[in-house]
Lab assay of single mutants.
Amino acid sequence: TFELKGKVGKVVKIAEDHYLVEVEGDKWIAYSDEKLSLGDRVMVVDVDGLKLKAKRIP
């Protein structure tokens, strides 16, 4: 999973306390310091076990 750092994905679902992000065809649980919206493009900035930390990108 460490190779996911720096990869770009898309928010495909918003849950109460996390997001579901699709990166290279796989879906991952993600969290972010900022509020994300459905369809936002994100970059993986860190990997915490099986969770990704994501940041919105333009």
Rank of each mutant, 00 (worst) to 15 (best):
D17T: 12
K35C: 10
S32N: 04
D33S: 08
E24F: 06
E16Q: 11
K7N: 04
G39I: 04
L20Q: 08
D33T: 08
W28L: 02
V44R: 00
P58F: 12
L20G: 04
D26W: 15
K55G: 06
L50G: 07
G39R: 08
D46T: 03
V47Q: 13
L50V: 10
V23W: 01
K5H: 13
E24C: 14
K55H: 03
E16I: 11
R41C: 13
K55F: 03
K35P: 10
V21S: 00
V45K: 02
M43Y: 05
K13D: 10
H18R: 08
R41P: 12
V44N: 01
D48T: 11
L20I: 13
A30P: 00
P58A: 12
R41S: 14
E34A: 06
A30L: 04
M43S: 04
V47K: 05
W28M: 02
I29Y: 14
W28N: 02
V12E: 05
K13E: 11
G6L: 01
G49V: 05
K13I: 08
V47Y: 07
S32K: 05
P58E: 12
G39C: 11
K7S: 06
K27Q: 12
Y19Q: 02
T1G: 15
V23H: 02
L50W: 15
R41M: 13
K5V: 15
G6K: 01
G9K: 00
V23T: 03
S37P: 02
S37K: 11
V42H: 00
L20F: 12
G6I: 01
S32W: 01
L38R: 08
E3F: 06
G49P: 04
D26R: 14
L36R: 00
I57M: 10
I29C: 09
K53E: 03
M43H: 04
V12M: 11
D46N: 03
I57H: 08
K13G: 09
H18L: 14
I29S: 13
A15K: 13
K5C: 15
K7E: 06
L36T: 01
D48S: 08
P58N: 10
R41V: 10
P58M: 12
V23Y: 02
E3T: 02
D26K: 13
I29M: 14
K55R: 07
L38D: 06
R56G: 05
Y19H: 02
S32L: 03
K55P: 01
E22M: 10
K51P: 02
